[in-house]
């Protein structure tokens, strides 16, 4: 059984560590916030100038001056700080964020990511995505393994315009988990480390265009 979107975010949340400073992308990655393990202190950074995102506000707490990168009203947790966009991206580009979790349209076998534009469709802009993949210490991508028409999204070479080159450290899909090993091959290679319950390595291979290695012992996600 492929993982549900919620199960993908549960798996992604397992990458969090106590004390981590984390930036969550818009969409599925935002849901990771719901799965931060109890007792673990994780600080969520919002690119529009907030370190320490709290829960969504109650109706009475709604403040138009306090939003997240998705423009949703939020709250700030105790100990939070506000800063300018320049300071926020200095934090991101200067390597002061431990991990970001992003969605993607394509990931290549070399760790390239494409997640900001589709030629021929209206381009809305890259926002902070290029800064995040260039500057954050660990880049985790969560996405569906295949597009709706079944096409591979984990590919040899991205044919969509890139967000960044050789920057993805980990890929979590509804079928499997891949970790990028910089020491393998010429310039690194992804290693399949986990599969979704009931999914075989051969099935993952059949639905993937990218070349990847398979770990000696492949675990089952959530087991």
């Amino acid at each position: 059984m492929p993982l549900t979107r919620d199960q993908i975010t549960v798996r992604a949340a397992k990458e969090l560590r106590d004390g981590y400073i984390v930036n969550l992308g818009i969409g599925m990655p935002t849901l990771v916030a719901n799965h931060i393990p109890a007792g673990m202190d994780v600080w969520l950074q919002s690119e529009n100038g907030l370190l320490g995102i709290g829960p969504f506000p109650t109706e009475a707490e709604v403040d138009p001056d306090l939003i997240n990168a998705g423009k949703q009203t939020v709250t700030a947790r105790t100990g939070a700080s506000y800063f300018s966009s320049a300071d926020s991206f200095a934090m991101i580009r200067g390597g002061h964020i431990d991990m970001c979790i992003l969605g993607a349209m394509q990931v290549s076998e070399r760790g390239d990511i494409a997640n900001w534009m589709i030629p021929g469709k209206m381009v809305k802009g890259m926002g902070g995505a290029m800064d995040l993949v260039a500057g954050v210490k660990k880049v985790v991508v969560t996405m569906e393994h295949n597009s709706k028409d079944g096409a591979a999204k984990f590919v040899r070479e991205c044919n969509l315009p890139l967000t960044g080159r050789r920057c993805v450290h980990m890929l979590i899909t509804d079928l499997a988990v891949f970790e990028f090993d910089e020491k393998r091959g010429g310039g690194g290679r992804f290693v399949l480390t986990e599969v979704a319950p009931g999914v075989t390595v051969d099935e993952v291979k059949a639905r993937t265009e990218a070349g990847f290695d398979v770990a000696e012992r492949v675990a089952v996600v959530g087991a």
């Binding site: 690119e47 300018s84 320049a86 926002g127 902070g128 800064d131 260039a134």
Partner: peptide, 29 residues
């Protein structure tokens, strides 16, 4: 890129004509 935009404005205000950043390397940017 949002960080490039923020930094370009900061640099402009600080009298810095140009700067190097890793953001956007290897992309259309």
């Amino acid at each position: 890129p949002q960080g490039t935009l923020a930094e370009r404005i900061r640099a402009g205000g600080a009298g810095i004509p140009a700067f190097y950043t890793a953001t956007g390397a290897g992309t259309v940017v």
